[in-house]
Computed example of a mutant assay.
Amino acid sequence: MLKKGFSSIKNRIAIIESDPFACTWLKEKDKKTAKVELEANIRYRNPERGPRLKKVVFRNDFSYHHALSLCMNSEGQVDIVTKVRPKDAGKVVSSPFAKLVNEKSNTIVTGIFNRFVQDLPFTDRRLREGLNLAINPEKIVHDGFKGYADIVPALTLPWSKEGSNDLRPKPFDPIQAKELLEEVGWPSGRILRIASFAKYKGAARGAARSIQDTIGISVSVTIIPDAEKIKWMQVLAEKKLIPNWDLLIIDISAFFLEDMPAYFHRELFGFDGSLRAGPRVMSFEHRFTAFAGETNRNKRKKLAQEIDQYVYHEALALFLCSPRELYAVNKNVNFIPFRTTFELAETEVTANHWSLR
């Protein structure tokens, strides 16, 4: 139960379609008090599950680096740091006070092809397939995520029951990638423009190197500052202007366990998708309409798998990986991570925890 403080979000609306009306909300900023305190609800309907902590305090006045340092090098200030960066994972592992908790996430990192551009044939499946084959996903995971990610064949989370057992990640095949590019034809002197946000600059630069080395075209990489992210996202969502990139490395998340196409595939290719970068894909729309209108759970699961298979075979996106969710946790805290939300109901501390000593 909320006892002290607050945490809220200020959003900006972006209109995707006017008829039928469709929009999205882009987060402009967080508004938080220095501390947010929660107290246990002792009347919780399921006491076997929890809560097992009397009080939880969120410290919003600590920077990421300061919080991580306190968790790794001391006790009594910070017990859990969320969203640990892969490059810091090794330091947590060697810490005398903290341990690294590594869990599969609800996020997929993918590449969006800008099908609005006129001088590149992104409407041709062969070009999209060739770029997928030109990238070594294992190297992206190793270099961009320090190994803390799972390769995905398409756009369904690796732990989801809606994943298709028939799909395998596209292989790294430089020879076929080059053959496909030669079939399609690449405009002489044209530079492939890749953009990404700072969070995934390692993956973006790794993809750029791989494409350049494999198929021999020049590639430029633009890392978008966090302060400008909302402007770039608004251009992409509203679709009034053609984005000035050819391939955007971005992440997509869902806070649900079921019906993945509603939160991943629709966002990228649906008429009301805020991440759609190109004309509507009517063959996708027909499949998604059938999926959205199906009330039988088993049939809807099958349709979800068929949508993922269709997106995979058409290579509608650049398929990369699902990064792991990393936490730095005090060694005397039994933290139970969830894949869809940050949950503390089942988390508890040992008798050696500083609050009990």
Results as ranks from 00 to 15, higher is better:
K10Q: 13
N11L: 12
R12M: 13
D19G: 07
D19C: 06
T24Q: 04
K32L: 12
K35W: 10
L38W: 09
A40C: 07
I42R: 15
R43H: 15
R45N: 14
R45D: 14
P47Y: 08
K54V: 03
K55Q: 13
F58Q: 02
Y64E: 01
H66R: 15
T82I: 12
V84I: 15
D88Q: 08
A89V: 08
K91H: 13
V92G: 05
V93L: 13
S94K: 12
E103C: 12
S105D: 05
F116C: 12
V117S: 08
Q118A: 12
F122Q: 05
E129P: 00
N136S: 11
N136F: 01
E138R: 14
V141M: 08
F145C: 09
I151G: 04
A154G: 08
L157M: 09
E162V: 05
E162C: 07
N165Y: 07
P169E: 05
P169Q: 07
F172E: 00
A177C: 02
A177M: 05
E183C: 12
W186L: 12
W186S: 10
S188F: 08
G189W: 01
G189I: 05
A198G: 09
K199N: 10
A208R: 01
T214Q: 04
I215F: 05
I217R: 02
S218M: 10
V219E: 03
V219H: 03
S220D: 15
I224M: 01
A227S: 15
E228G: 06
V235D: 07
V235L: 10
A237H: 02
E238K: 00
W245I: 01
D246C: 04
D251M: 05
S253W: 12
F255W: 09
F256W: 11
E258N: 08
M260Q: 14
P261K: 11
A262G: 11
G273C: 01
P279Q: 10
F284T: 02
R287L: 15
F288L: 07
F288E: 05
N298T: 14
A304N: 09
Y310R: 02
H313I: 01
E314P: 02
C321P: 06
P323S: 10
P323D: 06
A328P: 11
V329E: 03
K331C: 09
T340V: 14
A345Y: 07
V349D: 04
V349F: 00
T350Q: 07
N352K: 13
R357G: 06
